[in-house]
Write a protein that binds this DNA or RNA. Structure first.
Length: 105
DNA sequence: TGATTGACAGCGT
DNA sequence: CACGCTGCCAATC
């Protein structure tokens, strides 16, 4: 498996997140090959060149908090999308205890 | 090529 | 428990 560019890997991994699950920026960064690059991952979502294959709303902060989101009403729309996706929510945050994405099966 | 930004994460107060 | 500051990485201007 050849190592793609960091950003390609992040987009790929994000598109692989199953229905009803979410992943954290740190998790994606680690899977992409650079643990600690959570901020860089967030930037890729912001620039978001592949909105059709990258459900960025499935990506949340390490604490389950919904951050950013450049589309619709922002955080509000993102939360609604996650709820619609079957993700376990806790008030204003995602319940990572139940809905955090497992690693590659 | 260099400097700055940015949708984070972890630790401290 | 809530808020603030620092550190890391890659992309963008």
């Amino acid at each position: 498996m050849k190592q793609q560019n960091f950003r390609e890997k992040v987009y790929q991994l994000t598109s692989q997140i199953p229905h009803g699950k979410v992943a954290t920026y740190g998790q994606l960064a680690k899977l992409a090959g650079s643990p600690g690059a959570a901020r860089a991952v967030g930037m890729l979502m912001k620039t978001n060149q592949h909105p059709e294959i990258v459900p960025c709303y499935k990506v949340v902060a390490s604490d389950g908090s919904l951050t950013g989101y450049s589309a619709g009403e922002g955080i509000v729309t993102k939360k609604e999308k996650l709820l619609h996706d079957g993700v376990a929510f806790d008030k204003n945050k995602v319940d990572l205890t139940k809905s955090q994405w497992q690693r590659s099966s």
